[in-house]
Design a binder for these strands. Sequence first.
DNA 1: ATGAAAGCGCTAACAC
DNA 2: GTGTTAGCGCTTTCAT
Lengths: 342, 342
Amino acid sequence: MKRNKSSNEVTIKDVAKEAGVSYSTVSRVVNNKTYVNPDTRDRVLQAMLRLGYQVNLHARSLAGGQSNVIGLLVVDLTTQYMGEIISGIDDVLAAHQYELMLYTTHRRKAKESAYVHMMARGLADGLLISLPREPEAYLKSLRQKGFPYVIIDHRSEEPSDLFVSANNYQGGYDATNYLIELGHRRIGIVTGWMDMVSARDRLQGYQAALADAGLPFEAELLFQGDFSQPGGFNGGTCLLELAERPSAIFASNDISAMGVIEAARAKGLQVPRDLSVVGFDDIPTAALLSPQLTTVRQPLQEMGRSATKMLLDLLKNPEDTPESIIFPTELVVRETAVPPAE
Amino acid sequence: MKRNKSSNEVTIKDVAKEAGVSYSTVSRVVNNKTYVNPDTRDRVLQAMLRLGYQVNLHARSLAGGQSNVIGLLVVDLTTQYMGEIISGIDDVLAAHQYELMLYTTHRRKAKESAYVHMMARGLADGLLISLPREPEAYLKSLRQKGFPYVIIDHRSEEPSDLFVSANNYQGGYDATNYLIELGHRRIGIVTGWMDMVSARDRLQGYQAALADAGLPFEAELLFQGDFSQPGGFNGGTCLLELAERPSAIFASNDISAMGVIEAARAKGLQVPRDLSVVGFDDIPTAALLSPQLTTVRQPLQEMGRSATKMLLDLLKNPEDTPESIIFPTELVVRETAVPPAE
DNA sequence: ATGAAAGCGCTAACAC
DNA sequence: GTGTTAGCGCTTTCAT
């Protein structure tokens, strides 16, 4: 079975013949790194146009060139959270003629590792890794190879790792502190996946704010969520069934905040009159809900953009040592948090 | 500059040496199509494991194999609409060990064509094209090559094209008819991009419903939108400034319906009391708004899944001639449309 | 059942 | 400045 896919594809050799030059000259024109006589270049360009030549990226990559593809590892594509990040990534990739190859892990650790290895095998020039679940399983081997990667939304403990993140600790602190300042004393928290640093940081911010205000941290006010709406719903339901019900809940992301609000409604409670809620992320939907969601904003698009820029920079100048970035978060005061009733 | 990327990568030859066989045998084991002696196979498998072998997809593809990559062309990644479709695509791709390569056109026609050609050049085994803007520019060449592709959400006029779509005409009809049945007589419409068949179909459904009810189609009640929230806002604003204001508006997708609602609010009007609104798509956010959006549901995930299945089927059995699918739409009655005041 | 060898299309030395 | 040539890692004949 001879390949029929590319059988009638025009290659560099066809162009060479058409232009009456050797095919390495064509390669030079295509890559335009080395100097080529303007006349020759023109002839080649003409021939390329006439024949409708297109590089074969596989061949290029195999031959030692670059693939001009960036791999992106994501847990799940369907969230607005990811949508925002990806749009940032895509912005800068498009501006630099890079392509995006997407791998969705669906939160399966095994896949995470398999994908990373595959991409690092030549498919991609560099890797963007978002929300890694078990990074140590493969990051070590990437490091050994010197394969470039940047982690998004994960404050890596490994000093040599490059990452872009938001200040989750401060965000958690601010959210909680805002509720405290409004007068709340019993403040519940619905956390995210606790195997993620960002989720832990938000929790620690919550605890620190409590401590700074002289408020006790009570285990019964903590519900381990999973950054999902059902998770938020369950969390909200549990917390609201407590004998001494919290007057406010800090949900570790907007989606779970929406779940919490749903739970409150299911119990006949009104938000914010009977329960104040603060989320995290500030996804586009947050402003569209009614009441509009008070939340902590992290600059997701910007994080995607920065991570991508860092990676491309690394690709261009392997000697560079860019610095990881931690973006500040910002409390966005809207309608779901008010002083407690009494 | 010798490639450093793959310098220390283990290849098929390393495995061959380790296992004491020729490297074509290793290839056979890897692809396990031809028969290989069980013992030999075992030895090779062991060696692969020991060495941590991973195929180089570029080499495979170059040598005439498949890339196991599906290309997806999208206008814009950030919408929930796309998110839903992609998640459907991703579902079935993951189940079949295919990878997803994403190309975002940002609505630039030129990019659309360039990308398609590039992918068809070997990067991808098949193409999924969503919301094409100017398909005729490149579909012809794909057809000539016999390169497999499926179009998503575009009812192609070309009989040989394979597509998956929803019944946009019926959806538009149902939405409008529902408003008519509620008692509305002046019903505005905010359309989508009119170069898209689906947008035109929705409009025609609207017109047909009007006609069937003996209602005139008035040009001033039509606003050409662009499927965006600002577009919906502008449309809503214009329509609500009409001397004789419509009592209901059919927005051609949920996002622009949200814009229409925003416009109504900006004018001090309440939805649905002063204005009924019906959207299209039923994106997840539609149910989260308050009031909840009445809309026409199209099964986006399912559309993504079906298209992908069709494509993979085509890849497996090139002789197959699957049929294009038009999914039924479904009116989802929620809270934004009620009988007109009076 | 397995080995040998010819490319796939391209890049990057190396000559001239 | 341009041509020649040796691979990149793999699949696939063609032998044996």
